[in-house]
Design a protein around this nucleic acid. Structure first.
Length: 230
DNA sequence: CCCTGATTCGC
DNA sequence: GCGAATCAGG
């Protein structure tokens, strides 16, 4: 049966009232306990005391502490190590039952003071003169800004130096693109233009071709519109 | 063995 | 998104 509006409402109410998942499942009918739990999680309902979740019980209830508890003081608190330990535990649980804890500890190294401090790579843009700009949320200037006395126009790299860039284009020089936009050596032809055209003679011959008679033309291939998958 | 909730993962 | 299967503690 589907999760209708009403049933979701009942689920929320009963779950927050403290009913167990199986009780809720029974009251709603036509759903399993697992379905109730799954739905509750998907709805984001608050997690309630689970027997599996809290493994801190070692420190709270000290009475009758077994060697199992003293062997694993706070391993499950370490987020980087805990999954490994749990995985290893699952593996071992099938074969040996209890005493495997020490073996597990051997498998998982004592977490040698992992990175406590995140590097937190801050991306800053570089202002003129090479000083680093602050990012919007930043409170203190990261680097003492020491701009140079005056700004010198950067020289183009030698590969590009004699190439015709976008800024060099006039209506008298050929603007036929050489290479592909975005590539470092992209530039324009730059030769004198064929008067009245935006390109030089050579590139005009490429750009403008005589119209063939209709019957000799190749049909324009149809590019299929890509299916919109979701 | 029952109970519990949490998590995983194929559908 | 759904929920059976599974995990794991009480």
């Amino acid at each position: 049966m589907a999760w209708t509006e009403e049933r979701i409402e009942q689920l929320k109410k009963l779950w927050e009232a403290g009913d167990t998942a199986s009780q809720i499942a029974e009251k709603l009918g036509d759903v399993s306990r697992n379905a109730v739990i799954g739905k509750a999680h998907r709805l984001g309902l608050q997690a309630r005391p689970s027997p599996v979740k809290n493994s801190d019980h070692a420190e709270a209830a000290d009475h009758g502490h077994k060697e199992k508890e003293e062997a694993t003081p706070s391993v499950s608190k370490n987020p980087t190590v805990a999954p490994v330990v749990n995985e290893a535990r699952k593996e071992l649980h099938k074969k040996e039952t209890v005493k495997s804890v020490k073996a597990v500890e051997a498998v998982a190294p004592p977490a040698v003071a992992e990175k406590k401090t995140e590097p937190a790579p801050v991306i800053r843009s570089i202002g003129p003169g090479g000083f680093q700009r602050q990012v919007p949320g930043e409170q203190t200037a990261p680097i003492p800004p020491a701009p140079p006395r005056r700004l010198v126009p950067a020289k183009p790299s030698p590969e590009i130096a004699d190439k015709t860039s976008l800024l060099d284009l006039t209506d008298r020089i050929c603007r036929w693109p050489m290479g592909h936009p975005g590539e470092p050596d992209f530039h324009f032809c730059g030769k004198p233009v064929n008067p009245g055209f935006p390109y030089c003679l050579e590139h005009c011959s490429v750009a403008y071709q005589a119209q063939l008679p209709r019957r000799d033309r190749r049909p324009t291939p149809t590019i299929p519109f890509p299916r919109n998958r979701s």
